[in-house]
Design a binder for these strands. Structure first.
Lengths: 182, 182
DNA sequence: CCTTACATGTAACAAGTTACATGATTAG
DNA sequence: CTAATCATGTAACTTGTTACATGTAAGG
């Protein structure tokens, strides 16, 4: 059910097309919610059918037409109701940690590559988040309540990745220790 | 597919029943992998059919009988193959951050309660992880490679929660600031 | 008495993934 | 000529969730 409300929340921020929503999920909302374009289009169709959204067709001369979705009052109300109910926290499912748990069957070299890849991914994402921070949230105290709360969502991403990177250092140090002095 | 390998990894650590595996996922593996008992039983049945596991029926006089599952050679090989392939990292889907993103529709009081609940959950989990740390991982350097890698999985949980708790402080401070001096 | 722990499942449904499909434009 | 970006979808399949189902034993 939560994808529904992630979409409503994103559309409440600003009306958008399915394509744009998919992009938001991949970029600015990367630490908040994830959804593929297939999921987005399917759920938008349902929301539309339930009268939670309105469509505005935007004609473009050079590119294919696009459908911009807007929240209806009913959609906004649904979102509000959902927001004011407690939501369960996300379940944890991390393949990399499963690997660590099966430790003795895992080759150090493979683990090192996994860690390196993860580090690169995280560094890229951190760089992106920091650029947003720099552009939009320079003096957070001066911002509206809405933006300060959005900033807190971004901060979550930054602190999570920072802690993750430190953890990688720890694992790498352990690995070196293990392989050098057995 | 990854549930399959989470089960194989857990059974590689030690043979167990469906019930015990479900418990492990809820306790020691809470920061690694999550699965309900329904999922566990279903996947165990599939693994058994594919000859990745063997069952041993353990008769009990006082409680119902139980089925203890063991890895077969084929199961172990599957696990090994999986371990040595790169795995994608888990998608992010956090309802609380969705709430923050819809900031202006969210009442401070509701958010405060959410944060308080999350803090309590995390503190309990952190306490549990620390007790494991204290019991099994006092001098990590002295342990086998296997246990040191398992310790790194546990450390991931500890560092993640620690960072999360700090983030909560940050959000609470922001909230107070917002509500006191608008 | 009532809840929790132990122990194992089935069935229906919702959510998420992977594969397939189409077509224009722009940048290298 | 090839890949990437824009733009929207369908279909099939796999995972994950929720609800239902059953039965014993121990502890408060």
């Amino acid at each position: 059910m939560a994808l529904r409300y992630a979409l409503l929340a994103a559309l409440h921020e600003a009306p958008a097309t399915g394509y744009e929503l998919t992009q938001r999920f991949r970029s600015r909302l990367a630490n908040v919610w994830n959804a593929s374009h297939q999921q987005v289009y399917r759920e938008l169709a349902r929301l539309l059918q339930d009268n939670k959204l309105l469509v505005e067709t935007v004609e473009q001369s050079d590119k294919p037409d696009k459908k911009r979705y807007h929240l209806t009052l009913s959609g906004k109300k649904d979102l509000q109701d959902w927001l004011n109910q407690p939501q369960s926290r996300p379940p944890v499912r991390d393949p990399l940690l499963v690997k660590l748990f099966a430790g003795d069957l895992l080759e150090s070299e493979v683990l090192r590559e996994d860690l390196e890849q993860l580090k690169q991914d995280w560094l890229a994402q951190l760089g992106y988040f920091r650029s947003i921070e720099h552009t939009y949230f320079r003096q957070p105290d001066a911002l509206s309540r809405q933006y300060r709360l959005q900033y807190m969502a971004l901060r979550r991403g930054v602190t999570q990745i920072t802690a993750g990177l430190e953890w990688i250092e720890e694992v790498e140090a352990t690995l070196e220790d293990l392989d050098n002095a057995p």
